[in-house]
Simulated scan of single mutants.
Amino acid sequence: MTKLLAATILSTVTATALFVAAPLTAKPATAAKPAVAALSWDKKLSRSPAGNHVIGNPAAKVRLVEFMSYTCPHCAHYAHDSKVPLLSGPVRQGKVAIEVRPFFRNIIDVSASLLALCGSDSKFLGNHHAIMEAQANWLKAPPEGAQQRWATEDFGAKMKAVAQDMGLYSLMTARGYTPAQLDQCLADRTLADKLANQTNQAMEGGVNGTPSFMINGKLQEAHEWKVLQPLLTAAIR
């Protein structure tokens, strides 16, 4: 992707209103209290200074930044391949924290990202993987008349039309969201502009495709899990 494309997406979004164990007692008559299970860091969600979701131990030795586009098939493959080994391994152990940064390639990414970020922080990881896992079902050619529906200058209406036409709206209602909740999230132009600016900044920093990754602030020459995994293992040591 070129800087020109990022600038175009940014311009479109902005200008056209887009596009914790109690101690054991020494008294023999008192039963020992069960130990508290160790914290599963893969269930911990927080926010980065920039506002992006972070999964895992915020103080982990390794910070993995994922630049992800919801319309990128390679991103869906990475999400599938890395989900179990990464989350149940080094992330759960508190060794790696993942920061997910949505990356816009097109107008559909804008709508999908707003839906992934919809609701409380606790919903993000489920939303993220649900959209990625169902990508083969919803990522298709837009239906007839889509371009006209997507041309409206009403940002919320535009994003809703994209979500409905691509099947993302029904995917999210199946996850328990009400239409009112989805409409509110899809109308968040301020967040869309912020993510568009973040995409542009990423491209200026050398990110020219998705998925792309940074390990402790350094952009990696890796775009799939089998290449990224040994790099993470080396960083953990």
Score class of each variant (00 low, 15 high):
Lys3Ser: 00
Thr8Val: 12
Ser11Gly: 14
Ala15Trp: 01
Ala17Leu: 05
Leu18Ile: 09
Val20Met: 03
Ala29Gln: 14
Ala29Val: 10
Thr30Val: 14
Pro34Asn: 02
Lys43Gln: 13
Lys43Ser: 08
Leu45Ile: 11
Leu45Trp: 06
Arg47His: 14
Ser48Thr: 15
Ala50Ser: 15
Pro58His: 12
Pro58Leu: 08
Leu64Met: 11
Val65Cys: 08
Val65Phe: 04
Glu66Met: 05
Cys72Asp: 00
Cys72Ala: 01
Cys75Asn: 00
Ala79Leu: 03
His80Phe: 01
His80Glu: 04
Asp81Asn: 05
Asp81Met: 05
Lys83Gly: 01
Leu87Pro: 00
Gly89Gln: 08
Gln93Pro: 01
Lys95Met: 08
Ala97Tyr: 04
Pro102Trp: 02
Arg105Asn: 05
Ile107Trp: 03
Ile108His: 09
Ile108Tyr: 08
Leu114Asp: 10
Leu115Gln: 02
Leu115Arg: 05
Ala116Gln: 03
Leu117Glu: 14
Asp121Glu: 13
Phe124Ala: 07
Asn127Met: 02
His128Ser: 00
His129Met: 01
Met132Phe: 12
Glu133Cys: 02
Glu133Met: 05
Glu133Gln: 14
Ala134Arg: 12
Trp138Phe: 06
Ala146His: 14
Gln148Lys: 15
Trp150His: 14
Trp150Thr: 12
Asp154Glu: 06
Ala157Met: 11
Val162Thr: 13
Val162Trp: 09
Val162Leu: 14
Met166Asp: 15
Arg175Gly: 05
Tyr177His: 12
Thr178Ser: 15
Pro179Leu: 10
Ala180Asp: 12
Ala180Val: 10
Ala180His: 09
Gln184Val: 10
Cys185Pro: 09
Cys185Lys: 09
Ala187Ser: 15
Asp193Glu: 15
Ala196Asn: 11
Ala196His: 07
Gln198Val: 01
Met203Glu: 03
Gly205Met: 00
Gly209Cys: 03
Thr210His: 02
Thr210Trp: 02
Met214Trp: 06
Met214Cys: 06
Ala222Cys: 10
His223Leu: 01
Leu231His: 13
Leu232Tyr: 12
